[in-house]
Design a protein around this nucleic acid. Sequence first.
DNA 1: ACCTGAACACCGTTCAAGT
DNA 2: ACCTGAACACCGTTCAAGT
Lengths: 198, 198
Amino acid sequence: MTPPPFHHGNLRAVLLDAAERTLREGGVDDLSLRELARQAGVSHGAPRSHFIDRQALLDALAERGFLRLGDAVAEAGAAHPGDLVARVRAVATAYVGFAVRDAALMELMFSAKAAGAPPAVHAAAGRLFTSFGALFAADFRAGRFRSTDPERTQLLFVAALQGIAALIASERIAPGRGEDLVEEAVALFVVDGAPGDG
Amino acid sequence: MTPPPFHHGNLRAVLLDAAERTLREGGVDDLSLRELARQAGVSHGAPRSHFIDRQALLDALAERGFLRLGDAVAEAGAAHPGDLVARVRAVATAYVGFAVRDAALMELMFSAKAAGAPPAVHAAAGRLFTSFGALFAADFRAGRFRSTDPERTQLLFVAALQGIAALIASERIAPGRGEDLVEEAVALFVVDGAPGDG
DNA sequence: ACCTGAACACCGTTCAAGT
DNA sequence: ACCTGAACACCGTTCAAGT
């Protein structure tokens, strides 16, 4: 008469959701397959059916993270079609904001363990980075960025955002300072996006 | 007749050196107090005398990392007293190079766990960041950077370097591309350090 | 195909005891 | 002051067995 396990084929999603919550409240070190199984009300061996080992769970989390971040960036990039400065600012804010809100997930996504990651993770990450290119390609052709090499500048821009997020996540600077640095980055990268030039 | 333990008061240093090696060959997850004790030829409880727990070992590693990186940056910054572009390039290369060679250590230094770190770690990190300011203070006053706010620009510059290192460490870009991005950063931040401006 | 539950090796941490 | 060694709780992983 005891009810059957109430997850019918969605245990994988349940585990991932619980893992994201744990990641947000604690950190990567708090992620335990056994604890997740406990929260889901299944035996400690059950996750094995969906994740071959702990790393597979981490990879799945990273993939979902890249997909979510890619969506956030694409959405921000579509918001201000006519205003380049506002668009760059929106994308930068979305990127840094995601990294701040989900610092542990972001750390997971960009950890050294991403090396040799499964194809799905690599694909999701690639989708994010190429979307940056599509957002500003026309503006690069129009010479609205302080650069001669679009690809280099795009990477450097992403690197700057990534670095701002890292400084905030490691509490080297306060979260509020992030907006200042985003503004400084916009001023630096975009021609005429700056209050001053020297 | 068995020899006494051959570490007389330097077990702490022996453990830290072994930990740095493990960090370089493997990753943070490979760091085990028991394994380090084994390598040092002491009992598994011995490290307790020098590190209250695993986190204390990690903190000590982070502190040493910040000190080494601070030295490397200061040395690079003293190399080209008369040539700003060369100096900025040297500092950037030193920073990114350190992050690439000791990727796992760098990740440890900037991990979210740096939050609430002991004063020694915070002090070592602060020493690094303030040294950046001292290196370029005069050049900022001379208006040789594309900026109106020296502190913001310094932070953004560090963020860019940090981001370049992160992209390389996570294998999002090849290590060789790091030099390109450093060059692009120099061109962008330093007035007249660029091949082109639009 | 998915889940259970026992088993094994490993780890961090604590602590009384030795020198 | 520093190290030993037993003890405990917890974890990842494997695997035979159930449904």
